[in-house]
Design a binder for these strands. Structure first.
Length: 939
RNA sequence: GCAGGGGUGGCAGAGUUUGGCCAAAUGCGACGGGCUUAGGACCCGUUUCCUUUGUGGAUGCGAGAGUUCAAAUCUCUCCCCCUGCACCA
């Protein structure tokens, strides 16, 4: 079986027969789409996961009789493509080596200095990969997000957003490079780290007898009552500067950074020694406190000045101990002020921070890591369990007190917000990222209540797969507020209200899916003709086709067909992506649909898939365990790769890419294929027990797989359809199954069930079974419920259990030196079955024993019972009454089943076997027989 | 911190909605055996402990407590892990 040949063959057949190029018809439409990929590099396994999942659904729904459209587009707007080209231009060796690893020629790499070339190069790589994976895409509708027609559409969308008053202007903190003077996102930093912006509070302390205030940056204003002193960095440069008409003191480097957040004018320099000589007034308590040198103070972080709360901050306490040891009288005189009572080890302690640090070793040569650890622990516990002991918010929880204090201090102008980069993000140009307040930023106002109401409504009517993610969606919907929508740089559509800006690239891709419905229809239309009137008509039904045609110059037929196509395809959509898009794209997808379209065209279904691991590890460049899609397909084939990545985990679970898994899949496909190839070795014959068993299994499988596919529980589906099938087929043959009709039906049905999962293989298998249609267009199999039999399946389990038990018995007998040649099975008497089923009814042994004694049992079943034996048996079963279940079979059937499986049992045990009924047996094991567990005597 | 999702055997991962064939599917791994010149593949067995002419017992599903005849499954408390927290695609 050459998987490569098979795959190429069927891809050709599908294309030649336009199998995946649907047009509106009488059937129910079903539009499956995945968030289009960002093409600044080649595809990876995560792409296979998302697009493969969408393809499985598309193929399944097609077989269920829906008219399915699966389109594809590419996203290239924004800065990543530009950043990538720039890095190539700068001969960034790291990136160039990466590209070379993908066998991209030097010539092409050089051409990639042009961002458009880079984008189109990878678009082609993606297209080829998706084709080779056999995705059932309608390639006529392929679109790119920088197409002029795409831009016309986005302009139209923004005109609607603007008309609804959702575009507003305001201030906003962003990561900023002071060297390059532009906003810095993740792909602009070394190591691709997202600059983490945190808000601190800068609290002003008036310097006694001076004309300035010092500014302490803190995360914990609620501890202000516990401040005992100020810490500055000894030897660092400080400055006095004018900020909003006020003279403030902070470190020189902090002043540089703050200049990006407020007007800062440096007046004079001041030495740290000067600061240490002063005293300062706590704005809340009015206390006069000294300044001391703190070993841990970083003059470049925050304001370079720290307020000291030794009772609640391990660093502060350690620093005081340290100074005291060195003979600082001022430090030795300071008494920590406890302002919070908390649970945990510090409960009841006068100085809570002592509970978190090792006082003996903390001083001398302070272990910064250990203090860091202690700080985290104490902060956490105080936040969780702390209660304020003093101040305005006495009795309040720390969290609430903090929030209020924060607001109070800002309101009374005793403090202001200081933004810091918490994770030391560094621009690729090697300058540290700072926080800049942009004050003419355009936002899309997702906080608008009217809009949120619509979005909630839309979400409520959307099916989320898996359903357990709904709370996450609900959270995201409430949380999303202002979103900066225009950027200074990047590819994309110009922002209509400010032509110097570009629409931010997540905002230009929220409702573009609707474009797929008309893209091939408007392919010849000049983008300039795509006016608001056109989109108003096609998407909103405003006006009429004739007028629109006249106004725009677009042919009447094109206008009309566009509208019909949209109406048809957009009535049902299923959207697919990874979980990382829930908080941005998918939420915006819901919001934008809710405001732009009528509710008929709102989202219907959103499916979220998990990620792909390699040997249990996340795939990442730094680990060097990423897998190139092209390479995976050439090594394992498209079907195996898809199956492994898409179907070996449930929708939201992580799937695993590795060679063992691939081989396991391939072997099973080959096994199924070999059965199909040998079908002529079998002949039709009368149906036997094992034939009925296989039918029962097959029909049960159809039900189970259908159920799983409806919920996109692909692991469950694939386990049943591939792994279990192989086990069932092997058992069937082992048990002497050889009926050509049964085998053929089983394999043919399997071919159909495998259609969505391993499409190429299933076509091949289907045709091997003498079918001439495409599985891709075939009808999904329906279960024949009359062929389901739990009785027959139970009986087969019985046979296996008998064999297991027999082997065990044989082993024990052989240990005793005997060499048994024969096994005698004794089928339990009918009264045991009856008692079992009586007990199964209500698990009440007493009732059953009463029935026996009273004779009610005999009456009910019109049988003569041996009362003594019945009571014995019922009592023995009473011990396990909780696991007793109803048995559908009876002694006569069991007798037949054992005889039917005679050859199989003899082969497995290596012994001759015989069967007799307990009632006539003289065997010593006769009485130990129970229903489903015949007595076994090895002779 | 806030929000969401989780913690099951050597590993991965079912089972939890609807408590009871659950010592717990399935796959992988490991060990022993068969087959083979050998390896691979394949087949059989073992893989918590004890017991044994079998179908028995103990312990057990993050920790602890509770409800119940019966708990991986229900309730409460705690611990731990993962993801997101924004202008970045």
């Amino acid at each position: 079986m050459d998987l490569d040949d098979i795959e190429r063959k069927w891809q050709r057949e599908w294309a030649d027969n336009n199998v995946f190029e649907p047009e509106p018809d009488q059937r129910q439409s079903y539009l499956v789409s995945s968030a289009f990929p960002y093409t600044n590099g080649p595809p990876h396994m995560g792409h296979v996961r998302t697009y493969g999942t969408a393809d499985v659904l598309a193929r399944y729904k097609r077989m269920r009789g829906f008219n399915v459209l699966f389109p594809m587009g590419y996203h290239v707007t924004g800065t990543p493509v530009l950043a990538q080209s720039k890095r190539i231009k700068n001969k960034d060796q790291l990136l160039i080596n990466d590209l070379k690893r993908f066998r991209i020629s030097d010539e092409d790499i050089e051409k990639m200095e042009d961002p458009l070339y880079l984008a189109s190069y990878f678009i082609e790589v993606f297209r080829k990969a998706f084709h080779d994976l056999g995705l059932s895409i309608d390639w006529r509708r392929q679109l790119v997000s920088i197409d002029p027609k795409f831009s016309k559409f986005i302009e139209w969308q923004f005109s609607i957003l603007n008309a609804n008053g959702l575009l507003i202007k305001g201030k906003h903190p962003v990561g900023w490079c002071p060297n390059e003077n532009n906003a810095v996102g993740m792909h602009d930093t070394k190591g691709d780290t997202e600059p983490e912006i945190e808000e601190m509070l800068g609290i002003k302390f008036q310097a006694e007898n001076r004309d300035y205030k010092i500014v302490c940056a803190t995360y914990r204003p609620e501890t202000l009552h516990g401040v005992t002193n100020i810490f500055v960095k000894y030897g660092a440069q400080y400055v006095i500067c004018e900020v909003n008409g006020e003279r403030l003191c902070l470190s020189s480097s902090a002043a540089d950074k703050l200049a990006y957040q407020a007007g800062v004018k440096v007046i004079s320099e001041i030495d740290s020694a000067d600061l240490l000589n002063g005293r300062y007034i706590n704005p809340k308590t009015g206390a006069s406190i000294p300044a001391l040198p703190g070993f841990f103070v970083d003059e470049a972080f925050g304001t370079g000045i720290v307020m000291s709360v030794p009772a609640h901050a391990p660093f502060d306490y350690t620093a005081l101990l340290e100074l005291g040891k060195k003979g600082s009288e001022a430090a030795a005189n300071i008494n920590p002020i406890k302002v919070i009572e908390l649970e945990g080890p510090a409960k009841g302690k006068d100085i809570p921070s002592v509970a978190y640090i090792d006082v003996e070793t903390a001083t001398g040569n302070p272990n910064v890591d250990a203090i860091e650890e202690a700080t985290k622990k104490q902060y956490k516990e105080e936040l969780r369990s702390g209660v304020m002991l003093v101040g305005d918010y006495k009795g309040l929880k720390v969290k609430d007190a903090r929030d209020r204090m924060w607001k109070d201090l800002i309101a009374s102008k005793d403090a202001f917000a200081v933004y810091v980069i918490a994770n030391n993000a560094t621009c690729r140009c090697s300058f540290s990222v700072v926080v800049k307040i942009v004050d003419d930023q355009w936002f899309l106002n997702y906080g608008d209540e009217k809009w949120k109401v619509k979005a909630r409504e839309a979400l409520k009517n959307t099916r989320i797969l898996p359903e357990k993610l709904r709370p996450t969606f609900e959270g995201a919907l409430e949380w999303i507020n202002l979103r900066a929508v225009a950027r200074a740089q990047g590819l994309g559509t110009k922002f209509p209200l400010d032509n110097t800006k570009i629409i931010e690239p997540l905002s230009d891709s929220t409702i573009y899916i609707s474009l797929y419905t008309i893209w091939h229809i408007i392919s010849d239309v000049d983008s300039e003709k795509l006016t608001h009137e056109f989109f108003d008509y096609v998407y909103l039904g405003k006006g009429d086709a004739e007028a629109v045609s006249k106004a725009t110059g677009i042919p009447y037929e094109t206008v009309k067909r566009s509208k019909e196509s949209f109406d048809y395809w957009y009535a049902f959509t299923s959207r697919h992506s990874g979980a990382e898009l829930i908080f941005n794209h998918l939420t915006m997808y819901i919001f934008n649909h809710a405001i732009v379209f009528g509710s008929k065209y709102w989202p219907k279904q959103i499916a979220i898939n998990g990620t792909v691991l390699s040997e249990g590890e996340k795939m990442s460049k730094s680990l060097g365990n990423t897998v190139d899609v092209k390479e995976a397909v050439s090594r394992h084939g498209a079907d195996v790769t898809r199956f492994m990545v898409v179907c070996s985990a449930d929708l939201f679970g992580d799937s695993e890419y590795n060679n063992d898994a691939a081989n396991g899949i391939k072997e099973r496909l080959e096994y199924i294929d070999s059965i199909a190839g040998n079908i002529s070795l079998y002949e039709p014959s009368e149906l036997k027990h094992i034939d009925y068993w296989l039918y029962s299994k097959l029909n049960g499988k159809v039900i189970a797989v259908t159920d799983a596919m409806e919920k996109l529980e692909l692991r469950a589906a694939s386990t049943s359809v591939l792994y279990d099938s192989v086990i069932e087929l092997k058992r069937y043959f082992l048990r002497g199954g050889n009926n050509q009709v049964v085998i053929a039906e089983y394999i043919s049905t399997l071919a159909l069930l495998l259609g969505p999962l391993v499409p190429h293989f299933s076509e091949e298998l289907w045709h091997k079974m003498k079918n001439e249609t495409f599985v891709a267009k075939e009808k999904w199999p329906a279960a024949n419920e009359s062929m389901l039999s739990s009785k027959i399946e139970t009986e087969e389990e019985l046979v296996d259990r008998m064999i297991d038990d027999s082997k065990h018995v044989l082993e024990l007998v052989r240990k005793k030196g005997k060499q048994p040649q024969e096994i005698k099975y004794i089928v339990a008497s009918e009264y045991k079955y009856i008692l079992n089923n009586e007990l199964a009814k209500d698990k009440n042994a007493k009732r059953v024993i009463d029935m026996i004694k009273s004779g009610e049992l005999e009456n009910t079943y019109s049988l003569k019972f041996d009362i003594q034996k019945c009571i014995e048996f019922a009592s023995s079963m009473a011990k396990h009454v909780n696991i007793v279940r109803t048995i559908e079979t009876n002694p006569a059937d069991q007798y037949d089943v054992i005889n039917d499986a005679k050859g199989y049992i003899e082969k497995e045990t290596g012994c001759r076997i015989s069967t007799e009924l307990e009632d006539v047996s003289k065997s010593s094991k006769a009485s130990s027989s129970t229903p489903l567990k015949p007595g076994i005597e090895a002779i």
